[in-house]
Simulated scan of single mutants.
Amino acid sequence: MKVLVVGASGATGRQLVNQLLIQGNEVKVIVRSTQNISESWKDNTKVQIITASVLELSDEEMSNHVSGCDSVASCLGHNLTWKGVYGQPRKLVTDATRRLCKAIKSNKPNRPVKYVLMNTSGNSNRDLKEPISFAQKCVIGLLRLLLPPHVDNEKAADYLRTVMGQNDKHIEWVAVRPDGLIDKNEVTEYEIYPSPIRSAIFNAGKVSRINVAHFMASLITDESLWNTWKGQMPVIYSSSL
């Protein structure tokens, strides 16, 4: 299976590429710089490295990069700096999702391509009308006003929910919602739920980046797992944290 990963130089993206390789996939990565990627990728015949900015690629280039890929995974996010949070591009995740989906559809693949988006537990799945406390609604409202990356995450998932929907013949999708991300070196037991089981604002859980990567990679390689969660926004927690 061949997988295109964007955001591969980030903390979770690097883990995702490694998990995909462990599970026997070929991986194509698009990174702005090779500075933060693993040296082992450069000598791995199963890894193709494309140095480019996702949003600066032409439509033709984007279509060429997704051509032949069975899956596309996005671990894109905003750097936690003033420029990363308030600078451009403010709609990095949403615009990349839109352009990648457009590129997939332009190739008219014979079978649906899987699109896996790393999102956040702070974003509700409005298909399920998830219950949220009044206090959390107030905080989320402030986040929308003060933190553009939160709005970007919401709109990226909304694009998959409302534009791609549940019946697109070229794209199937899952938006993975991790709770508080931490670093660990090994995959541990984790739990998956259709909706949050705790408040992402007032009682957040923890999940390791490597566990998120393992789940995303498993969605791509395990058809049974994919069929369980496609078209949904599962929330992931590490069991022991």
Rank of each mutant, 00 (worst) to 15 (best):
N18K: 02
L20P: 03
L20C: 04
L21W: 01
L21P: 00
I22Y: 10
I22D: 11
I22W: 05
I22C: 07
Q23F: 07
G24L: 08
G24N: 12
G24Q: 08
N25W: 01
E26N: 09
E26C: 06
E26W: 05
E26M: 03
V27E: 07
K28V: 05
K28H: 11
K28N: 07
V29S: 08
V29M: 05
V29D: 03
V29E: 03
I30V: 09
I30Y: 10
V31K: 04
V31C: 12
R32T: 00
R32Q: 03
R32K: 01
S33M: 09
S33H: 14
T34F: 12
T34N: 12
T34G: 13
T34S: 15
T34Q: 14
Q35N: 14
N36M: 04
S38D: 09
S38P: 02
S38K: 01
E39R: 15
E39N: 14
S40K: 13
S40I: 14
S40E: 14
S40H: 13
W41D: 08
W41I: 03
W41P: 02
W41T: 12
W41E: 07
K42N: 06
K42F: 04
N44W: 03
N44H: 03
T45W: 12
K46M: 09
V47S: 10
V47Q: 06
V47A: 11
I49Q: 05
I49T: 11
I49W: 07
I49E: 10
I50H: 15
I50T: 15
I50G: 14
T51Y: 00
T51P: 00
T51A: 01
T51H: 00
T51G: 00
T51E: 03
A52I: 04
A52L: 10
S53E: 14
S53D: 12
S53P: 05
S53K: 01
S53G: 08
V54L: 04
V54A: 02
V54S: 03
